[in-house]
Amino acid sequence: MNFKVYILAISTIIVGLVELIVGGILPVMADDLHITIGTAGQLITIYALVYAIAGPVLLSLTAKIERKKLYLITLFIFFIGNIITYFSPNFTFIMIARVITATSAALVIVLSLTITSKIVEPEHRAKALGIIYMGISSSLVLGVPLGIVLTNALGWRSVFLGIATLTIGSLILIYIFLEKIPPENTQPLSVQFKALANKKIAGAHLATLFMLAGHYTIYAYFTPFLETTLHLNQYWVSICYFLFGLAAVGGGALGGGLADRIGSQKSILLIIGAFAIVLLILPYSTFSFPVFLVLMMIWGALSWSINPAQQDYIIRSDPDTSDIHQSFNNSALQIGIALGSGIGGLVMEYTGSVTRTTTVGSIVVVIAFICAVVSLKIPAQWQHSESINRIR
């Protein structure tokens, strides 16, 4: 595997930490800033919304800039955003900093994906993308416990100073090891958004969105699930989060390897189908803690294994607009996270049962499976056009 892929993966880990790391330290931040926890929670909401929109838009607006130069500039802006957070005197400044970090992180992630797809051989592309997603997933699932540990030891501001310091290291690695990558001819933004009219790829985006929505319907409320069904204390809850995180990190590489072996299309259906089944039977495994741990780690691995296959599938389905669709797919992931958290909250509010979130989450994943099936049945537009040209 091209070692540059691992350097890009390191960058995705660093920028990915900022998104959900706030979730574990909201009470501390709220108390220090003299605001309610609900108000502090807006830091997560605004980040997700800005992130989802910024990726596709910025990828288009910066299309004519050499890729390495753009990567370095974006990482530096991300560094500035974290420094602003560290020195912020009030909530308003932190909110501004969150917009800056969300915008820059979105572009770093999509650049990492698009650059990776260009610097590796096609037969290894899914596996390479799996490594990038392993970086993304590891930052998302391990960020919360890491943030809690640092906050308890050094205060919540140390979290963002630490991320800023790591960003400097990433800047140095990218500057030294990544070669210049010329920009490609890119269509105007208005034309690129019309690419969503491609029903085949739109179905793939919806599959990503609903799978992550189903996942976060339960994962966003995993702590009360563990406390209610298994009566675990905080120590064992932390152990579960750690094991889940390890499984999720490995899931990215697992999905990429699977796609390389059996193909992206079969992998997508296999992963989504298995994911729906695991969520459905999860509450029934709580009779035995060891059995639950095994099923939980399968859930964790499957939760992020879909992404490499999806990215490879998107590239193969429409190479001409693959860059913008990779960004759209990453945005769909973010929207899915927000949607799933909202659905889970509604389920708990109206049923009063955290275990019902698994059933609802499984149903949402079934919707993802249907979207994937519909997408796979639609012929690729570019292949159809090539066939017509050959006939002519």
Results as ranks from 00 to 15, higher is better:
residue 171 L to K: 02
residue 89 P to R: 11
residue 18 V to C: 06
residue 111 L to H: 02
residue 84 I to M: 10
residue 185 N to T: 13
residue 339 L to P: 00
residue 80 I to W: 08
residue 70 L to D: 00
residue 204 A to P: 03
residue 152 N to A: 12
residue 371 C to F: 15
residue 10 I to V: 15
residue 45 T to C: 07
residue 82 N to Q: 09
residue 169 G to Q: 13
residue 76 F to L: 11
residue 279 L to R: 00
residue 96 I to Y: 09
residue 81 G to L: 04
residue 184 E to P: 08
residue 218 I to W: 01
residue 253 A to M: 13
residue 44 I to N: 11
residue 207 A to H: 00
residue 247 A to G: 06
residue 337 I to E: 03
residue 189 L to G: 01
residue 309 A to Q: 07
residue 28 V to I: 14
residue 225 F to G: 04
residue 189 L to Q: 05
residue 341 S to D: 04
residue 12 T to V: 15
residue 67 R to D: 00
residue 100 I to N: 02
residue 379 P to A: 03
residue 134 M to Y: 08
residue 22 V to S: 12
residue 106 A to I: 03
residue 381 Q to N: 13
residue 362 S to R: 03
residue 265 Q to G: 13
residue 148 I to D: 04
residue 40 A to L: 10
residue 27 P to Y: 12
residue 329 N to W: 02
residue 29 M to P: 04
residue 390 R to Q: 13
residue 9 A to R: 00
residue 235 Y to F: 15
residue 264 S to F: 07
residue 78 F to S: 00
residue 247 A to P: 03
residue 296 M to C: 13
residue 374 V to N: 06
residue 146 L to M: 12
residue 164 A to R: 00
residue 374 V to K: 09
residue 319 P to Y: 05
residue 89 P to G: 08
residue 346 L to F: 15
residue 334 Q to H: 14
residue 173 L to K: 01
residue 65 I to H: 05
residue 16 G to N: 07
residue 52 A to Q: 07
residue 379 P to K: 09
residue 190 S to N: 12
residue 93 F to S: 11
residue 366 V to N: 01
residue 167 T to M: 06
residue 75 L to Y: 07
residue 23 G to K: 10
residue 308 P to I: 04
residue 192 Q to K: 12
residue 292 F to G: 05
residue 262 I to L: 10
residue 206 L to R: 03
residue 336 G to T: 09
residue 51 Y to P: 06
residue 288 S to L: 11
residue 54 A to P: 03
residue 373 V to T: 14
residue 374 V to F: 08
residue 331 S to K: 04
residue 122 P to A: 09
residue 72 L to M: 14
residue 366 V to I: 15
residue 134 M to H: 09
residue 104 S to H: 01
residue 351 T to I: 10
residue 287 F to L: 06
residue 34 H to I: 14
residue 328 F to A: 02
residue 64 K to M: 08
residue 130 G to Y: 02
residue 326 Q to K: 09
residue 317 S to P: 06
residue 356 R to C: 14
residue 122 P to G: 07
residue 86 Y to S: 02
residue 276 A to W: 01
residue 248 A to Q: 04
residue 191 V to P: 09
residue 13 I to W: 03
residue 165 T to W: 10
residue 205 H to L: 13
residue 95 M to R: 06
residue 10 I to H: 09
residue 54 A to Y: 00
residue 256 G to T: 06
residue 125 R to Y: 12
residue 166 L to H: 08
residue 274 A to R: 07
residue 192 Q to I: 12
residue 196 L to R: 05
residue 220 A to R: 01
residue 375 S to G: 14
residue 98 R to S: 04
residue 315 I to Y: 02
residue 132 I to F: 01
residue 335 I to R: 02
residue 283 P to K: 00
residue 319 P to A: 08
residue 207 A to S: 15
residue 94 I to P: 07
residue 91 F to E: 10
